Simulated assay, not measured.
Amino acid sequence: MANIKAAKKDAVTSEQRRKKNSSRRSMIRTFIKKVRVAIMSGNQKKAEDAFQKMQSIIDSHVNKGLIHKNKAARYKSNFSLKIRKICKI
């Protein structure tokens, strides 16, 4: 355990940050899951709506440093390709 007052404060702050980040990561996973479910259902309109919501959430979390920009770009690219394939089927 920390002995210095500043170290104790840092421990409290890092715990608060950890809780917020885990909540935000969970939210990202939830939105990704909604897009996957919409794609699997074959409903292009529903998939596009879910994708738009997911895209804005992921972009905001990239700016906060929670998710790497290349990982976000990979998600967006893969899902947009899958959504376009729905229309061809």
Rank of each mutant, 00 (worst) to 15 (best):
S23G: 15
S23A: 15
R24S: 07
R25P: 03
R25M: 13
M27I: 00
M27Q: 13
M27V: 06
I28V: 12
T30E: 11
I32N: 02
I32P: 01
K33E: 14
K33W: 06
K33Q: 12
V35T: 03
R36H: 09
R36I: 12
V37L: 12
A38V: 12
A38G: 08
I39C: 04
S41R: 04
S41N: 09
S41T: 08
S41C: 01
G42A: 07
G42W: 04
N43M: 05
Q44R: 14
K45A: 14
K45M: 12
K46M: 10
K46T: 09
A47C: 07
D49Y: 04
D49M: 08
A50K: 06
A50W: 03
F51S: 03
F51Q: 07
Q52F: 05
Q52G: 04
K53G: 06
M54N: 14
Q55E: 12
S56M: 09
S56I: 13
I57M: 04
I57Y: 03
I57T: 08
I58P: 05
I58Y: 02
S60C: 01
S60K: 13
H61P: 00
K64C: 06
K64V: 06
K64N: 10
K64I: 05
G65N: 01
G65F: 07
K69M: 07
N70P: 00
N70T: 15
K71G: 14
A73N: 10
Y75M: 05
K76A: 09
N78I: 02
F79E: 03
F79M: 14
L81S: 14
I83S: 07
I83Q: 05
K85C: 00
K85E: 11
